[in-house]
Amino acid sequence: MVLAARSNRASYALLAGPAIVIYGLVIVVPVLYSLVLSFTDWAGMGVPNFVGFTNYVVMFSDPIFWWGLRNNGLVVLVSLIGQIPLGFFLAYVIYRRLVRHSGFFEAVIFFPALMSPVVVALLFGVVFAPSGLVAEMIGRATGNPMFSLTIFNTKNTAIIPYLIVLLWMYTGIYFIIFLANLQKTSPEMLEAAVLDGASEWNILKSLIVPQQIPVFLTSAIYAVAGSLKSFEILWIMTNGGPSYYSNVLGLYMIQNTFSFYKYGFGSAIAIVVILLSVFMILILSSIAARFSRRFEQGAT
């Protein structure tokens, strides 16, 4: 028995060990190392000087940080009130075959999620440029060859083209998630509702939506986790401009670290980004847990 237990432990270590070790070394160790560096003024070479919380103080008093945070917030909002509801709606439409050619639409909605961020950024960089595709089309339509698209040039609107691209690109993921879950719905139940004379609206409101609430909640967590992390598209599309108006925290981190050799400062931003996303996810998870408990109680 003892021997068996020992051999079990050895097998466990052999089977699970490699994944845990490689994961821990690559993901956890560098983050801890950065945490240490974030309290220094290390410039990439020489000996780092310990500077306490200076980097954090500087960051929190930098308007670009707060503006980046604001833009990150908008990215979260686009996921929560844009991608997820739209993804659900589209999944429902396709699932219930409310339109023709559902196979075609499925492809059109899902394919963008697979495209590479670099391609999307290069493409839509040209589409939304002041003298880009959209501007040229408006210009030709209105007979004004000088037309230039400047509505995205103000501080408040600079992030909008990026948000549109995100909405278009990633709604497909939530669409697929909801579609998969809708397909688990029991057909008999729907059949019965239809026979009872329920309208499509009633079916959606009373049957489908309550059933999908857990999926909405997990999707929301997924969205929040994703929103702080990606900036590749923005990097190539606008590089944070005009000025810093379309900056997000991830890009702010890259620019500070690699353009100005402020490794200590960049590390501090990295730590804040990671903490922020962990914090938001903890909050969302606890909300989700409470919700689903209430939902289960209500259902029984």
Binding site: G125, S131, G132, S148, S243
Partner: peptide
């Protein structure tokens, strides 16, 4: 100087000039 300059790339600027606009 046009107010669209901050979001006009050099590629687009060149293309505007070269195309006689």
């Amino acid at each position: 100087i046009d107010v669209s300059e901050p979001s006009t790339t050099r590629e687009q600027a060149l293309s505007t000039f070269v195309s006689g606009r």
